[in-house]
Amino acid sequence: MIETGRRIAPRVSLPFTIRDAMIEHARREFPKEACGLLGGPRGTIEAIYPMRNADDSAVTYRLDPTEQLRVFREIEDRGWDLIAIYHSHTHSEAYPSVTDRRLAFYPEAVYVLVSLAAPEDPVVRAFSIRDGDVDELEVTVS
């Protein structure tokens, strides 16, 4: 099973191509929520895996379980880490909702939120969510 055991830094280094790809994915799915994973070697974000929202919903998301297992394996087979889980909020700020906190089953992952509440001015923020407690992480786009 994939390891997410590495301690996350309080800072997240996000390649601009991957930030832009997340925003593009969120816009493509709008008004439904978009979701996906970010992975890479040694804690460095290098790849984006846009995933299907099995909930097909404007207010919730869930990765398709079969696709989830397949992509987890792909990341694992490359010797990479699952670093972040991203999803979009289409009508609210880029901050973990009560649902996001309750369903944060990957405490070692970074949770990235993309808000399209202001469609021309998308906001990307990152958080650690452990036992329902939210800590914002500084995002540096490189």
Binding site: M1, T60, Q68, H87, H89, S97, T99, R102, L103, A104
Partner: peptide, 13 residues
């Protein structure tokens, strides 16, 4: 047998 917690959430509260 593999067990994976769902990756889920959303702005609905």
């Amino acid at each position: 047998v593999s067990i994976l917690p769902a990756v889920a959430g959303g702005e609905h509260t």
